[in-house]
Design a binder for these strands. Sequence first.
DNA 1: ACCTGAACACCGTTCAAGT
DNA 2: ACCTGAACACCGTTCAAGT
Lengths: 235, 235
Amino acid sequence: MAEQVETLRRTPLSRDRVLHAAVALADEAGIESLSMRKLAQELGVVPMALYKHVANKDELLDGMIDVVVGEIDPPVSDADWQPVVRRRILSAREALLRHPWAPIAIEARNQATPAILGYLNSMVGILRERGGFSTDLAHHVMHAMGSRMLGFSQELFDDSRRAGRSGPADPEPPAGFPPEAAAAFPHLAAIAGAAAHDDASVVGPGCDDQFEFEFALDLLLDGVERLRQQGWTST
Amino acid sequence: MAEQVETLRRTPLSRDRVLHAAVALADEAGIESLSMRKLAQELGVVPMALYKHVANKDELLDGMIDVVVGEIDPPVSDADWQPVVRRRILSAREALLRHPWAPIAIEARNQATPAILGYLNSMVGILRERGGFSTDLAHHVMHAMGSRMLGFSQELFDDSRRAGRSGPADPEPPAGFPPEAAAAFPHLAAIAGAAAHDDASVVGPGCDDQFEFEFALDLLLDGVERLRQQGWTST
DNA sequence: ACCTGAACACCGTTCAAGT
DNA sequence: ACCTGAACACCGTTCAAGT
């Protein structure tokens, strides 16, 4: 009877429930504190129960990545390739911003999950069909865009990723560019000061991340469009 | 007496020796199998002895990163900013290729080490002094180049990082683009086939990484030069 | 004062014993 | 057949006991 209460109290485990609980845990506690044991505890389950739904921790991470990739909007329809690619990449960026652990997880996993392959495949399709790119140019463009295709902002240092959004990550104030560092790195101090925003550090919070992302994205997209128009080929 | 032999047999520990041993261990065994305990064993020392030279594992990683950054050549002298930046970034890339774990380590650390700040500072200096960039443009360019400034190839998937260069990483052949995946991802299969090289996968070994890196780098540098010439400003 | 063994609080995962 | 507790082989780091 107590058994029956138990089974009724929580919906039964499923791969989906495991994956989404893991994503939620990583979102709020940071990826470095996601462990099989803590995840199991979160789900009110014994650690080994997870292994019925994921083969191991790496497969759990793959599944989590696919959950995030699944949040990217499908391409909008438009005559030109450029706005389609642009908007989809910005949608990918939004998904990644919701899950700050995802970029390092994806890069560290270093394995194409089916969801990522599907996303990239669809992006190549847009280049080819909407933009008339040669396979040759499309290939190099995919390399050149790299992980930016997935919305990575590629910032070298980014506090947003350090811990959960709600967690007490930094007791210290964001700090900006400390005076003693300004003396040692005058050029960095200068461009930090040039930023339109107050406590901007070189790369990181304080700068308008969205502006910087779109600046870099458009620099690439415009360069690519120029190559496309002049019929660039590597051979 | 046996004591004396012991002390003579190995040079005494130092921060430098610890750091270089850690880099060597990560190079050949992969960063994921670098542990304080294994590193100590490698140095013929009890684990706790390491803590005399590094505060903890994070500080060890910072030190390792600085070793790698220290391998980047100083800037060459040239009239134009573009070849100076280009050559230095390619030198950074060479350093990172020698230490495949470094990119993820740097991104995961998410903390600017002094060596990295110094490198970035010097790159801004080149833009400002050799190229006459405004602080405003230099700032956005640093964001746009992002980790590519440090020679990251930013490939989404890259076998070279998976394990040590000499280690028995992949018993399986590199595989290229498997037939069943080709059916599911036709566009990826198409561009893989378009690559001038045999078993090219979308992104990864088989492609000419050096070509792809320089293609992307020049796309960015040319775009930046165009902005510079037209006196671009964000305000 | 310095060094270090044992211990602590964790991991991911195996495996055999329970139902 | 399924589930799961205990165990194994690891971690990074603290701490107290040794010299």
